[in-house]
Design a protein around this nucleic acid. Sequence first.
DNA 1: GATGAATGAGCTTTCATTCAT
DNA 2: AATGAATGAAAGCTCATTCAT
Lengths: 192, 192, 192, 192
Amino acid sequence: MPNEPDRRTQILDTALACFLDRGYAATSIADIRAGSGASTGSIYHFFSNKGALASALVQRAIAGWGAATAAIQPDMPAEAAIRASVSGLVIWGLERPAERRFLDEMRSLARLDPTLADVAQFFARGADAASALYAQYRQRGEVRDLPWPIAHALMLGPAYDFLRHADPGVAPAQAAILLADAAWDAVRARGT
Amino acid sequence: MPNEPDRRTQILDTALACFLDRGYAATSIADIRAGSGASTGSIYHFFSNKGALASALVQRAIAGWGAATAAIQPDMPAEAAIRASVSGLVIWGLERPAERRFLDEMRSLARLDPTLADVAQFFARGADAASALYAQYRQRGEVRDLPWPIAHALMLGPAYDFLRHADPGVAPAQAAILLADAAWDAVRARGT
Amino acid sequence: MPNEPDRRTQILDTALACFLDRGYAATSIADIRAGSGASTGSIYHFFSNKGALASALVQRAIAGWGAATAAIQPDMPAEAAIRASVSGLVIWGLERPAERRFLDEMRSLARLDPTLADVAQFFARGADAASALYAQYRQRGEVRDLPWPIAHALMLGPAYDFLRHADPGVAPAQAAILLADAAWDAVRARGT
Amino acid sequence: MPNEPDRRTQILDTALACFLDRGYAATSIADIRAGSGASTGSIYHFFSNKGALASALVQRAIAGWGAATAAIQPDMPAEAAIRASVSGLVIWGLERPAERRFLDEMRSLARLDPTLADVAQFFARGADAASALYAQYRQRGEVRDLPWPIAHALMLGPAYDFLRHADPGVAPAQAAILLADAAWDAVRARGT
DNA sequence: GATGAATGAGCTTTCATTCAT
DNA sequence: AATGAATGAAAGCTCATTCAT
């Protein structure tokens, strides 16, 4: 007998499928109801909000990306960490373009929609952690003394931009290397 | 006799104000009607769609940004052109954050909404022009031989990323210089 | 050709019929749509709220009652005014029990529902006017020096209570006289 | 070992708290579930309906008020009985305004909602008892020969009306006396 | 006695768009 | 060129109640 997933999971899976397919804003509760076989009431039994659904999924999606960059340790050299995180992002993003687009949409919607407060907080926490890590590298003298927003932009901005215009014509491996190289070049401590 | 703007312009101005204030998705035709004093019918007389309104405004907004980088000529050295265009983007984006956010929103909505086809085309045309320019620089040997999506990402990705998280704590001039430097460093032709 | 009422009026009439039949809370917009032939959108074109509909109707209903007591003048003797207003209320309430019940429901809902703020204000204004009138009578020495809430209760409380339990077994004229007498007896200035 | 109240009582207590706080209509079963710690199923195990809950509570609430007027005996003089019942109502209503408001709401809802038939019956029974008592006083020649609805209105209408507009500016004791006096004056047998 | 997942009809409100005048 | 009434599908969400365990 197959291991039937429970209702909560069915709903979550359907919601993710819809969000990836159509985007968050364009997905209606009715879509999720139809896709999952659950009733409207059932959906709201498990998730108080459309936003709560998104929140649960953002967490799941980020966890997936996190796994891809799990190798990064706080005490590893800045160069290795930064290269790994950029190329991890690029590889993951090229493998799962819909997921990447979904997170992108959530990031901007979370700024305005109060039902997405959880999502916003989630992103904020991630950003803080990264910022703290960069501060460490700076103290160790491995990276340039840049304001965090600039440092972030120099390291990850190109990857995000590249993924946003995702073009199947570029080989993932090559793109990952080029962008990781550039990220490290842009922030590594300048010699005397 | 005062130089009363015509209806079309009144509508366009109000629409822009609303889009900048609330975003495209959150602006209703009723908002524009109320703000402009024009009737619903009048709005649809001049613009066949909500999308058509956006289209006209995207053109106007981009024209404004274009003016800021008007100094860029096809035959000027790559370095000057690239630096100018990056720092132009940064300065403009910090001066007009709402406008920048609006263009960002439009760029992503245009991918899905068929009534925004014009907008999508408009962005595509801009991208093509930039791509052509980069090809020229490459032929002249001034820049690295990179796939255009990568080159674009290296030059402008950081600026876009920086503006997206727009932080009033960083001085505009400093940010523009840092990002322009980085852009040029990332793509300039490598010595032997 | 019959004088077809306009949409706004059709909606208002249907809404009143529903409110009188079922009460405000139990009436849905769908009921009004079905009864009036107007579309949902049309209803919301004329009335921003379910509450706005109620507000318009409360005004109309009170105006109707006002007409019944139109004879009351600020400068007429307290006795005549009070008798007229009590018996006017009783006669009107027995003639239009549904209308009376509707106003009663609105009075209590208006305390809590913010979309009924207009209704609340409307009732409040009426109460203020009555209170001011009583203060005048008091100054003229025609009525007892009672706190307004008590005076109101003594004069109109019995009529409201009687109408609430409306019993067809009591002759309207007799009821009106008994209650008007009692109202005047209860508040008229006591002799030395 | 602490005297833990049983589930039924917990549910009832929470329901009352909710009804007093928000009113019957605005209270959902979910509210009661959350407040009482009982499950939905448990609530429906003890009470077949939302209405059954209300019914049990109306009984309790009226019993409370009954205790306040317990001194009233069938064979005591009409004047004492009427004064006691009016001032008892006023004192009780000023002390427990939420309870009073709740009973008021129930009285009007019970007229329409079939699940509140019990409540309606309960109120009716109370009214019958009072009516029978008045008939006795009438036979004894202590009170006016008035139709019961009018007599009720004259005696209790002012108190109800006063409590409905409950104004903390009037001293309870004074209000109770004024309203009790008026009640007796209004119905006591007229001299030749 | 107790649980809580499941139901589904129903609610108010929004909004881009059409069209007769 | 201009009006604004009219449309109706669609949205997110609520809630009393049922029932298998």
